[in-house]
């Protein structure tokens, strides 16, 4: 990178003038919010790890009864590719390759996010059917809280993407839209990062 980064995420760069400077404060502020979000996720990870013992399981169904590792792998693939696809959005915004390309990349991200959610909800339904409901044990409460919260984040990310597509169509690529797209990028990549923790520590480690 040739220029200093002013804020997290792919920077718009000096060529974007006001939008670049405006993004500095706004995206940094959003990053502060995400770090507090990270603390919430971190604490949920800690309670999940604490409940993962016979007492926390309370005689209810355990990881081996409930987790479908194939489905977790599919979800991981959806989210990882969806996260990288946002790189296409950031680059298309930065190098001004046109509205259509930005919207196409955004739609790809939303579609991959939706694919992720489809398999996640399917898993939740299967697990609930096997008796793995949140009220069955402390371990299951923490599992639903942690993975469910991440799922809600992905859902809001998709809603945000659709809102941004509407804004791009309505307002065009003005400074405000560019700054918002930078924030959305940080959010979307952050969800990917949390998922790395989830598939490793929530799914793979208990099944090891």
């Amino acid at each position: 990178m040739n220029e200093a980064n002013l804020y997290p995420g792919l920077n718009l760069g000096g060529g974007h003038g006001d939008a670049h400077d405006q993004a500095e404060n706004t995206v940094f502020g959003f990053w502060v919010f995400l770090m507090s979000d990270l603390i919430i996720f971190g604490i949920l990870f800690a309670s999940y790890a604490s409940y993962r013992d016979p007492i926390g399981l309370a005689g209810g169904p355990g990881p081996r009864d409930l987790f479908d590792i194939e489905s977790v792998a599919i979800q991981t693939a959806f989210l990882l590719v969806g996260g990288v696809a946002y790189g296409g959005v950031s680059l298309a915004v930065k190098y001004e390759t046109g509205r259509a390309k930005v919207i196409a990349w955004l739609l790809l991200c939303a579609a991959l996010g939706a694919g992720f959610l489809f398999f996640e909800v399917k898993d939740f339904i299967t697990q609930a059917g096997k008796g793995g409901v949140p009220q069955a044990s402390g371990w299951l409460s923490s599992y639903w809280a942690l993975v469910g919260l991440h799922g809600i984040h992905v859902l809001s990310g998709i809603v945000w993407i659709l809102a941004m597509i509407a804004q791009i169509i309505k307002r065009g690529m003005d400074d405000t839209v560019k700054v918002r797209l930078s924030m959305l990028g940080v959010f979307w990549h952050f969800l990917d990062l949390v998922w790395v923790g989830i598939f490793s520590f929530v799914f793979l480690v208990p099944l090891a």
């Binding site: 980064n5 804020y7 997290p8 990053w31 990288v84 946002y86 990917d192």
Partner: peptide, 14 residues
Amino acid sequence: FLHLSFSGEQSRED
């Protein structure tokens, strides 16, 4: 992906 730099080319306190 988040373009955080660990080598001090960051201008903000990210």
